[in-house]
Design a protein around this nucleic acid. Structure first.
Lengths: 342, 342
DNA sequence: CTGTTAGCGCCTTCAT
DNA sequence: ATGAAGGCGCTAACAG
């Protein structure tokens, strides 16, 4: 009974197979299966049964050829392994997956040539639209205006303001982070952050300083830019404590830095969160949940970015036209590393 | 000059557009563009020019309809956010991307219903094959033998031995880890690992014990199974040190555990790697590079798994038939947390 | 209600 | 060397 009835090896059934088995014409079979009304109930049933029996799946290629739409979109990422592409990609896949659209995944590995190659391949496959996902928030070169399908940029905005880009609001992220620290009663706040070559570092910083200024405060020292690493967090904290022993909160540019900061604070005998509250950005679970105490962090809502990009692409395919950079809000996820001053 | 010549808004050019512009028939145009030999060089050039001018991209749907092959494959992952799917997916995308095949990405979110739904959708799009990527090495339900296209399972093997599965060799991973520690002159080795419900935990452990036994050794205590977390690593290390103060190496079930272990060792005044060498599994860069010292870890070579799966699928599409579970070797990445006994 | 006809865009015989 | 014709699987007009 191994290879008896199953369609295991053979070619997939076609509509005309179904029609023949049901004893009707292909046109009728098509109508029956697509819920067109001009079919007698009994006939429809016969067709449906036949289709069922043959495990018939309508060939979407043929359908797409006819319809002009394929129900596929291209997801062009510049670095898959990057921490940021994945949640966005999930959000997009999620938003699409509900409906009837399939996603082509392409990773250009940050290489413009390869990216161009992928775009051509995707257009050849007649995708209905494109989402371009970057790995950092700095603007990236536009794919151009000449493309025959709509494009939405996610995370990394296009450098062409005519394009539509969906990004997390980094300035606001910095702002809400400081707001949280202020709410904890912290006033001697330091800021240790990453590579100043990254717009994310500069914008988060900008938002943080603005929120401080709004409260009539300044940080205990100039923000320390460095690298996005634990090592930098440790090094910067050592310097910080030497000069400003009275610091009562450290806002870190990302979770890795925050881990380094917390380690050195602990070693120097500072209690977290009692003496010094610490928070990071990105809310990368592997880092935030394992630390002592668990790390408060700003979640960039990247899945939301992905979903928004997908929806925007949807409406663009439907003819809608938006452009410019749309920044989505972030949110503070409070864990043990921040707490009210006691 | 904004919207002059560009194909910006219009429908993509078709072969007959090209033919008309070149003043030849579609048949000739087709031959010319596909490098068929029965075309005069000058004619071919005219066609190529016309195609270029119209930004002509052959419609792969139409081509696939005719050819029976679509040059697409489905990548079915059970959890995208999971740490293990991504490198595999990259490897697969990589192996395919070089050629002319595009990858449909689907995330079933670990839900069998959704998975079935995606399989149907993919078959409807006439993918030439399927790669199923799991998030843990425990066997998973087969998609069945009835599918009209070949399937390769990656990371999580199918429970049907007739299917082909490509997985990392967890037993060997444990073995080479211990071999490395032995090479460092360590003999009082402890093993702190994760959830015993995971096959990966049990197999790595099995390999580790086997390698110890081969050297005529036993671990300083029974392996401690727990959770895949830093917290467990810390807790287990405290217990370990209380009972076996003479331990000179700890093999950890993953990098998170290893981080926890290192933290407590340091706090208890043990030097890493001098007094106690520590190593983990997975080689997750964010964890291994940030620790003090950087963590030696076993790289599961997941990209390689992905590439191998892609190649296997290729040959299966070509008619090749393999089955069973193929285990790929892992490798030790040596960093500062392990060193010869001084 | 059902069947016939005409393509969607492309490639492959088969004539010319 | 070139062109005309047929067909991949499907759907949307029309007829009947």
């Amino acid at each position: 009974m191994a290879q008896a009835t199953g369609p295991s090896r053979s070619q997939p059934a076609t509509l005309s197979d179904v029609a023949r088995l049901a004893g009707v014409s292909v046109a009728t079979a098509s109508k029956a299966l697509n819920g067109r009304s001009q079919v007698r109930a009994e006939t429809r049933q016969r067709v449906v049964d036949a289709a069922e029996r043959l495990s018939f799946r309508p060939n979407q290629l043929a359908r797409g050829l006819l319809a002009g739409r394929t129900g596929t979109v291209g997801l062009l990422t510049s670095d898959l392994e990057g921490r940021f592409s994945i949640p966005i990609l999930m959000g997009a896949e999620d938003a699409f997956g509900a409906g009837e659209v399939a996603v082509f995944l392409c990773d250009a590995r940050g290489d413009a040539i390869r990216e161009q190659h992928h775009v051509r391949a995707l257009l050849g496959r007649r995708v209905d639209g494109l989402i371009v996902v970057g790995s950092r928030t700095d603007p990236r070169p536009s794919l151009g205006r000449e493309l025959p399908v709509p494009v939405v940029y996610a995370y990394a905005p296009s450098d062409d303001p005519e394009d539509l880009s969906i990004v997390p609001d980094s300035v606001d992220a910095g702002r809400i982070a400081v707001t949280h620290l202020l709410a904890c009663g912290r006033t001697r706040i330091a800021h240790i952050t990453g590579d100043p070559g990254y717009l994310a570092a500069r914008e988060r910083s900008e938002g943080a300083l603005a929120a401080l200024a709004d409260a009539g405060l300044t940080p205990v020292e100039e923000p320390r830019f460095g690298a996005w690493s634990e090592g930098w967090g440790r090094a910067a904290t050592a310097l910080l404590l030497d000069r400003h022993a009275d610091v009562d909160a450290v806002l870190c540019g990302n979770d890795q830095i925050a881990r380094g900061v917390m380690d050195v604070l602990r070693e120097r005998g500072r209690r977290v969160p009692e003496d010094v509250s610490v928070m990071g950005f990105d809310d990368w679970n592997v880092l935030t949940s394992g630390s002592r105490p668990p790390l408060t962090s700003v979640d960039l809502n990247l899945e939301q970015v992905g979903r928004a990009a997908a929806h925007a692409l949807f409406s663009a395919i439907g003819g809608g036209r938006r452009s410019g950079i749309e920044a989505l809000p972030c949110r503070v996820v409070i864990r043990g590393s921040t707490a009210p001053l006691s």
